[in-house]
């Protein structure tokens, strides 16, 4: 989504995701130690993760992208890589280079007990929250003023400026929304995997990008479809071939898609204007 509008790969997106996971972990731990339990911890951790990821997304855009909006294409790309390295090592230095166990925040739901071995409350939470975010995002992009401005900006930036769309604000908002979604994803996945470290953002960023490209850049249902295909391919491939190659499949899929169908499954090809 973010990519569709700024037309650039945001290498720092994975780092924003990682920071979301860390913030959630810290908030959850502090609250647990203070004696809170149950869904309140999850909710608060989620809220803080969203706030902080959003804030980081906003700041990253301000520093590493905005001043470079008119620079050659390679410049923002390199500065984003720099940003990504910076954030990774910042977390590494101020927190820890080791894996941290992540508490399972999602409470066991009793009514699911009989079928919990095939469909746990974790799965339910992930499924429902993902669906909810997707619906919210589609509604936002389709029906709000800001959503329309975003779509316009992704079509033609110069024209959008001319018709009075504040593109700086639009791009900032896009970053914040993207980061917010990253935070939601981070909390869900972290509590599913039950551990995090400073490096999770890199692989997550690549996989998210793969999913987005797979589905067609800028298309929300496309991104969800892409993620599903990616997830299924990975688990099938690792199940049937060898588990060591899990990440290879993500990368290989990405490479294959980009080479043969760069517009993605649900995307349209654009003609370059001369």
């Amino acid at each position: 989504m973010v990519y569709g509008i700024i037309e650039l790969i945001n290498f720092a997106h994975g780092e924003v995701y990682m920071i979301g996971a860390f913030v959630a972990l810290i908030v959850a731990s502090v609250l647990t130690m203070a004696g809170f339990t149950g869904p309140a911890v999850l909710a608060l951790a989620m809220v803080f993760a969203i706030i902080y990821s959003g804030a980081y997304g906003f700041t990253v855009e301000k520093i590493a992208y905005k001043p470079l909006r008119h620079a050659p294409r390679l410049s923002p790309l390199i500065s984003a890589i720099g940003m990504s390295i910076f954030l990774q090592n910042y977390v590494l230095l101020v927190q820890t280079p080791d894996f941290l166990p992540f508490p399972n925040l999602i409470p066991e739901l009793e009514f699911l007990d009989p079928i919990s071995h095939i469909f746990s409350s974790n799965d339910l939470a992930i499924l429902s929250i993902t669906t909810l975010s997707m619906v919210a995002l589609v509604l936002f992009v389709k029906y709000t003023r800001m959503g329309k401005a975003m779509r316009a900006t992704s079509q033609d930036r110069t024209m959008s400026t001319l018709v009075g769309i504040p593109i700086n604000k639009v791009i900032s908002t896009t970053f914040v929304i993207g980061s917010t979604l990253a935070a939601i994803g981070a909390v869900l996945i972290a509590s599913f995997m039950q551990q995090i470290n400073f490096y999770i953002g890199f692989v997550a960023g690549i996989k998210a990008f793969t999913a987005a490209v797979l589905g067609g850049i800028g298309s929300i249902p496309g991104a969800v479809l892409g993620s599903l295909i990616l997830g299924l391919t990975e688990s099938f491939a690792t199940g049937y071939i060898r588990s060591d190659y899990e990440d290879v499949f993500a990368f290989a899929l990405l490479v294959i898609i980009l080479i043969f169908r760069p517009a993605g499954l649900l995307g349209k090809t654009k003609t370059q204007k001369v």
Binding site: A64, P67, S79, I81, G82, M83, S84, I85, F86, N89
Partner: peptide, 13 residues
């Protein structure tokens, strides 16, 4: 690495 990252951003800017 921290300095690298910062330096890359600043250089581009």
């Amino acid at each position: 690495m921290l300095l690298f990252g910062a330096a890359m951003v600043l250089m581009m800017l």
